[in-house]
Design a protein around this nucleic acid. Structure first.
Lengths: 152, 152
DNA sequence: CAACATTAAATCGTGCACAATTTAATTGCA
DNA sequence: TGCAATTAAATTGTGCACGATTTAATGTTG
């Protein structure tokens, strides 16, 4: 009469990967209306957060923080540039790399974006401590999985 | 001297959404080589799990379980059909809906897919109990966020 | 039963992700 | 010095996600 039968392994809801997958989509959905007002998509917003944290980063540096590569970032950054939030420019020190810098508009956007995180936290229904714990657990999980990938 | 300054709110790593986002990508990466052997993408695999759990579902039913809609599922299911894993057929009872059924190949694939979950669990580095707890917390989070979306 | 509303898929356009490849600059070392 | 290896972005092609709209079948109501 215990709850764990062999069938449980095939229940979608029992897949940790599916919970991460569907929670990711749910985040996307709650961010959407808030980010629409800023003129950003969800991944663009995350890149902007990385740039507000440290301006004038190379594509490679942004990629390391975001776990993304140039094939994803280049078009995304071009859109941010087309929308006037950043400027992309080859690094004179090393012409292979491209430096991404915030425009004035991009810097000002940070102020408007201040309201977003509290709104999201409220929508999650989590208290700060639980959110922190979950965050820590998920970072550990991600790092462990990335380490597994590299091992093979 | 405490660890929580105002700046912490702008650190990418302190964003719960980013941890979910990047953990999702990490899952994708560890699943990739295993699913390549089955001839499935990661979202296709999740749909197959839903069908192994319950065959002969409508697109709508699959969508409810996956939190996806026909604009995502229709092309995905067509690819599964093109690859011989499922058959799509209008429901004679209600010609609006489309029934998705596993082919023999699709059913047999389930056996080959048995090895996947234990491999993934190992790559996560989590013990079963921690994985279950995380899973439960993430489902709660997702459901809470979805409820927030609908409220507005 | 006829007009209207609702429902289920499909279609279309945009923007991620990512594998594989290409282009160009820099580094290293024979 | 010169040339192969390495590195950084960009490009190309495929497959999700998702908003908005369309098409077609079913329900509902006067």
């Amino acid at each position: 009469m215990n709850g764990s039968s062999k069938d449980d392994l095939l229940q979608l809801e029992n897949f940790l990967c599916f919970s991460v997958y569907s929670a990711g989509h749910a985040f996307n959905r709650i961010y959407k209306p808030l980010l629409d007002e800023l003129g950003l998509t969800y991944p663009q917003y995350l890149v902007m957060v990385a740039l507000w944290q440290e301006d004038n980063q190379s594509v490679r540096s942004i990629g390391e923080k975001m776990y993304l590569e140039s094939n994803t970032l280049t078009p995304l950054l071009k859109r941010l540039e087309a929308n006037g939030f950043v400027v992309r420019k080859r690094d004179p020190e090393d012409e292979r790399s491209v430096r991404v810098r915030l425009t004035e508009v991009g810097k000002v956007l940070r102020e408007k974006a201040q309201d977003v995180p509290p709104c999201i936290l409220e929508a999650t229904g989590l208290d700060t401590e639980t959110a922190k714990r979950l965050n820590r657990d998920l970072r550990t999980l991600r790092d462990q999985m990335d380490a597994s990938v590299k091992k093979l």
